[in-house]
Structure formats: C-alpha cells, structure tokens
Design a protein around this nucleic acid. Sequence first.
DNA 1: GCAAAAGTGTTTGGTCTACACCCATGA
DNA 2: TCATGGGTGTAGACCAAACACTTTTGC
Lengths: 232, 232
Amino acid sequence: MDYLIDKKKFFDIWSNKLTIPIPALDIVIFTIYKWNLCLVLWRNKERFWDKYAIPGWIIARWYSLEENFDNILQRETGITWVYKEQLYTFGNPSRDDRWHVISISYYAFVKVESLLKTADFTKIDLVKYDDIENLDFVYDHKSIIKYAKQRLEWKLEYTNISKDLLPKNFRISQLQLTYEIVLWKKLDKRNFQKKIFKLHMIKETWELDKTTNRPAKLYTFIDKELKTYEIL
Amino acid sequence: MDYLIDKKKFFDIWSNKLTIPIPALDIVIFTIYKWNLCLVLWRNKERFWDKYAIPGWIIARWYSLEENFDNILQRETGITWVYKEQLYTFGNPSRDDRWHVISISYYAFVKVESLLKTADFTKIDLVKYDDIENLDFVYDHKSIIKYAKQRLEWKLEYTNISKDLLPKNFRISQLQLTYEIVLWKKLDKRNFQKKIFKLHMIKETWELDKTTNRPAKLYTFIDKELKTYEIL
DNA sequence: GCAAAAGTGTTTGGTCTACACCCATGA
DNA sequence: TCATGGGTGTAGACCAAACACTTTTGC
C-alpha cells in the first residue's frame, strides 16, 4: 500500500538482485604519532588483496549512523573513543566494481595515548600521511583520505580541534608543532602564541615539563567542546 | 564467494525484509522570490497527509548521486538546473517511522527567472523561509531545512554563491539586499561595496536600470565558477 | 519641489606580519 | 661553558567599522 514498505521494489527475487545501492560507513582516522601525522588503516589480506583500506562496513538496519560508527570502530580497530565528524557521502556506482556501494564517510581524531592503549595492532597499521601517495588502496579510499585531510586542515585553522590530537597537558611548542605538521608549513613562534592566547583557546597549568633542557610551562585547553573561531 | 555480492545478506526472503537501510536523496531548494528567501517544497496530499516535504526519492542503483539528483529534481519539480552541493547524510532509524531510510541531503539554489520558467507549480509550492516554523513537515524535513539554511549563510559570507540567486545583471543594492535577507541583518552600504569590490567579485556593465527614481548601474559577476574567499 | 534610491571618503582602532635577543637548564 | 629549546615586544601595513551628505530622476 505504501510505496516505501512495498519491499518488492527493493529486491527482485527473480534476478536475485537488489534494486538499490548498499549503504556503507567508512572512517578516516588521524593521529599524531611521534610528531608525524598518521592514519589508522585496515589491512586484511584475505579481503583486500594486500591493499590498504580505511575501516568500514555495511550499515546495519535499525541502528543510527553513530551506532554503526562505534560498532565498526570497535570491531575493526579496537579503539574505543575518537572525535568524529561526518565527511561526505560518496556514491559513484563504479567506486566499487562489484556492486553499487554508497560510502557515508567520517573522519576522526584519536590521541596517541588512547590509540596505543586500546588499538588492536593485529588488525590495523599506523601509516604516515606522507606515505600514502606510494601505497595501494582499495576502491576510492585514497581520494577519501585526501578529502579528509583537507577538512582536517580547515578544522585546525578554524577550531580548537587540536585538543583531540594532543595530550591533556602540553607545551605550547607542541601545539605549534601540531599545526606545522598538519598545515605543512613553519609558523612564527611569537605570532602563534599571540593568536592562540587572544582566542582564549588554552590556559596555563601550574605544572612544568622538565624533559627538555629548559623546563616549559604546560598548557591545557579551556573548552572541552569543539569551538569554532571566526579567525585564526 | 565475496562478502559483498552474497546478496542473501541484504534480503531475508523468509521474513521478506531487507537487512540494510534504504538510501534516499533529498533536496532543499532555495530561491529569492520578490525579495524574500523562499523554499521550493513538495506537496503531495496522497503521500504526505497534507504536510510539506522537500523533494526526494529512493536512490536508484547504477546511477551516481548526481544522476539521481537530476532525475529527482526534474521529475518532482520540473526545474532543469540548479546550483547544488551535498549537505549531510541523516541516518537516524526513527526519522521515518515506517522504515529505516537514510537521507543523503543536498541543498540547491535556483534563480527566480529560471524557477518561474521551468518549475511545475502543480507539484510544488513556493514557501517563505520565515514561515516554515509554522508549517508541518514530514519526518525530519524541517530540521534538514534549518541545517541547510545555516550552510547557506556560511556560503554567502565566504563565497560568491549569490551569483546563483541573482539575475545576470543586478544593482548593487539588490546584491546587498540578498545578503541582508539571508543573513537577516542590515549592512552598511559603503562598507558593503568596498568589500565586494576589493574581492573582485563583480564588475560594472554599461547598462543602467531605470526602473527606480535615480538610474542605477548594473553589475555582473566576474567569475562563473564558485569561488571561496578567505574573508568577507 | 519633494520623495526615493544612488553614490561617494575619512577617521579610528584593531589585527597581522616580520623580526632578534636573552633565559634556564642538563650535559 | 655550551647546546637546546623556552620565553618575550615592537613597529608598520593593512583591514574593518562607524558615520552623513549630495546627486539624479520620476511624479
């Protein structure tokens, strides 16, 4: 009676084929590891013929995108929490040559401590972003990654997203280094600090980091929430 | 043999149910009509119990999102060309209470002349944005519209997207009015002009518009393409 | 001549950039 | 005592916001 619950429309029993594309969810996970921008990639030789893939799976019915995300993340990487945001939905019918799969893509950031504590390194590889040019990926996953990288750059310039890439307390030089790594350019130390302070993005703690020659003040983010700034 | 083409996974013949959600594509269409921000909405009493909906339909397999978009737009509104961009993918299982439908949403802009020339007003209604608060919409369409409006504001502030809302030639005061309508605030005439000119967004034509008391120069956009500006 | 919209500059405060030296500590 | 990274200020250019009067035309 109703067009939507007339399920015959979506599956043709005689040809044994769906008439709709299949929705999947894929995740680009960034982290800063040893002061390199890295990706958490999925390596599954059986399924992917020795190519890399970003974690992802078919979307299960009756679960929200968030629930599907959490489930895929946990099952395929072991990681329990990341900051995530929807990236884009890719629907080119030829992106997967076996079937029309629509990829609802997310990008995510994970702090390195959290990664090392929870990730299952038998399932994933940590790969430097700069190396992906030379690696083989399944389907259109390389272009999804590049799209995510653009978004990361924007996000870093206009929000306090770096809070999800850095430890709780950090030296200002580490914050600056994070920006330099992602934006891939040198920044001026004094101007950088002025900007960050003017935005009230971080505050001093009373701790010192004595691991370098001259001890450095440690800072922490003021806002726990994601905040967008007009300028940076 | 391969996990993806094992179609049994996606349709359970015994329960006669799909095991995946259904992907659909929905479109929020903006226009400026009689100097009001308006939406092109779909009114289908049979299907929608006298509520408004944004145009949309189930995604057909083997066609790209763009092809599905064009097809839906043409069939449901008659409109032949709009500027479009992907907005977001909404996947809450309860957004449609009959089935789990994932909505890949787009927002679009159409010039009023083009709208009036091609649209099929037996299928659509033109509704002022300011009125939607008091109207009934199916599913989560009202919140999709509000999300699209936010994006429109951003787009107007940082790009030359207004070219797709205005006629080819226009008075500067009309351009300013468009900004004021969408951003919902008064702008300073002199500062507005300085900004727009500094960005090299528009250029003079040698025509005059004599429909008001004092004739006004007509301007036109320099770039045909969408261009993003760092500042506005 | 008057109503209506067009057109036009200046000042002020704030922000961005470029740039160089001293400090505290560990080895 | 030296090497390493930490910490700090200023001057000049540019940009953004506030603000009011004159001009041209139709009626």
